[in-house]
Amino acid sequence: MDEQEVRRRMRAQELYDDEGPGLEALVAERQRAKHLTWRFNMSDPTDVPARQALLREIFGSVGERVWVEAPLQVSYGDNVTLGDDVFVNVGLTLVDDIEVTIGSRVMIAPNVTITVTGHPVHPELRAGMAQFSAPVVIEDDVWLGAHVVVLPGVTIGAGSIVGAGSVVTKDVPPNVVVGGVPARVLRSITDEDRVFTYRAPGALA
């Protein structure tokens, strides 16, 4: 299977293998991403201009006032776009064989994983390291809690919150709080939430 066929399969939700003869360009793109993220993760945290410049090399596009804490891990990096005023805490992992779109004013807590890629169920299909990909979209004003996992093909609607430790397996509507494994809607976000009141853990529902 040549490089163009693999790239086509990536975006068609078909099975593919991204290693082997004729796929050197894909391997080189992943190696470039590893090198750039290594440089970012090892950089002086007080050298903000250098770190911001590295982020613009790593990602496909980066909006204004974007802040990313180290460490960061990506597969390709340039398949990821970030809007304006995005804050990413430590330990973000992006498996971005194809597009990951992150909107504006998105907040990502520590140790979040966003993956566009998975593997088939049957072990005979997995034996050759076959995988599939489906794009992920995180719309504007979303907050992803600590240790959230977002799986392939998911869109998280604008304004929604994903509670800490959740695994998001299907689309999330706008302006809701979801949580759990798998994540489910706990409640809507309403005008009553314009007035902040501290809620003890477990009191979101």
Rank of each mutant, 00 (worst) to 15 (best):
L36D: 01
D18P: 03
V74Y: 02
V121H: 13
R7T: 03
L26H: 10
L55A: 07
G60E: 03
W38Y: 14
Y198P: 05
T190D: 02
H147W: 08
N41P: 08
H147C: 04
Q131S: 15
A127K: 14
L94F: 09
P21D: 11
A127R: 15
A70S: 14
S104H: 01
V66I: 12
R56E: 03
I156N: 02
D84S: 05
E19V: 13
V137R: 15
A53Q: 12
G128I: 03
A134L: 08
V142Y: 00
S75Q: 13
T93W: 12
V95H: 07
R184I: 03
D97C: 15
A109K: 12
E5V: 10
G118V: 09
F87I: 12
H119K: 13
P71R: 07
D171F: 09
A146Q: 07
T115N: 06
D17W: 14
N89H: 10
D193F: 06
V100C: 02
T169P: 00
S188L: 01
H147R: 14
R105N: 13
N79E: 11
L26D: 07
E139K: 10
V142T: 02
V178K: 03
G163W: 04
G128Q: 12
D97K: 15
G128R: 13
T101D: 03
V178C: 05
R105G: 05
G60Y: 03
S188R: 11
L186Y: 02
G20S: 12
I156R: 07
Q73S: 13
V149Q: 06
R7Y: 00
Q131A: 15
A127G: 08
R11S: 12
S75W: 06
V185F: 00
Q13V: 11
Q73M: 13
A33W: 02
G159C: 11
Q131E: 14
P173K: 11
W143D: 01
E57V: 03
S166N: 02
L23T: 10
I189H: 02
A109I: 12
I189D: 01
P21H: 11
L94R: 08
R51F: 05
T190S: 08
S188N: 08
V116M: 10
E3V: 06
P49I: 08
T190R: 03
M42F: 11
T197C: 06
A130Q: 15
A183C: 01
I114W: 00
L23K: 12
R9W: 04
W38T: 15
H119C: 11
S133T: 11
D78E: 13
A12V: 09
I138P: 01
